[in-house]
């Protein structure tokens, strides 16, 4: 563990990533306490530039405070990013583990199902799913999880495939351990590093996907997210740059931070990089 932290923090880039991400998490958590009136309250004239009295980041097309919008948007983006990744991890790890551990026809079957999801253009599938389920927070999360789990399943299956032939797994079988016990206590801990890395990056891409959905108007209409802020302000893009650029920068920073963290984890969890 100490080695892990040392390698992780020896790269300035992973530290930067962690600091940015932590800051965004804190803002998201504190938003309802800092801005009790909520993001939809109109506070002044529309399209006031940043620096106008009381408006640090200006106001949007309806005269709402951009700072409040960005803070509340972080809540939705992080919520969607994290929960959809957890759902995708659940499906992907279960199917990947079963396919990799048992092999044979079960592996063939599950991998064909996985490929089925991989060959459909994922964003189109996602739009259809969300439109079909009615745009809401939960339909967004379910939709994103459904199009991203194959990635996890592939990684997990590969790890299980190589680990199940290792002698310590055979030893566990000769000791009389059941399959479930072997999968959970013997193989899974050894397969975790790549799963952690993949999932940190998946949170970033889920945030992007959510933004894209909201931009197209397929997000939850009762919630303000960074994507819907950009979508709602695109008509004002040429007269009030801050209405689109600021939420865009927020998305970029979050995704970048998560990728930095993923890179750092990749190094820190790689036993060859440790000494």
């Amino acid at each position: 563990m100490r080695d892990f932290l040392r390698v992780f923090f020896s790269r300035p880039i992973s530290l930067i990533g962690l600091v940015i991400f932590a800051a965004i998490v804190v803002i998201a958590l504190l938003a309802p306490f800092l801005f009790v009136r909520g993001p939809f309250t109109i506070v002044g004239m529309p399209l006031l530039p940043p620096g106008a009295p009381g408006l640090l980041a200006g106001s949007d097309v309806l005269g709402r405070d951009m700072v409040v919008g960005l803070a509340y948007g972080a809540r939705i983006s992080l919520l969607v990013g994290i929960t959809s990744t957890l759902c995708a991890l659940g499906i992907g790890m279960l199917l990947g583990a079963v396919a990799g551990y048992y092999g044979g026809w079960l592996d063939d079957l599950l991998m064909r199902v996985t490929e089925f999801f991989q060959i459909i253009p994922s964003f189109v599938l996602l739009m259809v799913l969300v439109a079909f389920l009615q745009p809401s927070l939960s339909s967004t999360v379910i939709g994103i999880a459904l199009v991203t789990w194959p990635q996890v399943a592939r990684v997990v299956r590969g790890e299980f495939l190589s680990l199940r032939s290792r002698e310590f797994v055979q030893a566990a079988r000769t000791l009389g351990m059941g399959d479930a016990r072997i999968i959970v206590t013997q193989i899974l801990p050894n397969a975790l590093p790549p799963i952690i890395v993949v999932s940190s990056m998946m949170v970033g891409s889920a945030i992007l996907t959510e933004s894209a959905l909201s931009f197209l108007g397929l997000g939850d209409p009762n919630l303000l997210s960074w994507g819907s802020m950009i979508g709602g302000s695109r008509s004002a893009m040429w007269v009030a740059w801050w209405t689109t650029v600021l939420p865009g920068v927020a998305i970029m920073l979050t995704v970048l931070a998560l990728n930095f963290i993923g890179d750092g984890l990749n190094d820190a969890l790689n036993p060859r990089r440790r000494r």
């Binding site: 055979q170 000791l175 801990p189 050894n190």
Partner: peptide, 23 residues
């Protein structure tokens, strides 16, 4: 097989891969 498994045990060849590195 399960009750009989414990009566037949094995020592493996590779001292590096035969022990779970995380336990």
């Amino acid at each position: 097989l399960r009750p009989l498994r414990r009566r037949i045990q094995m020592v493996f060849q590779d001292p590096f891969s035969s022990l779970n590195p995380r336990e």
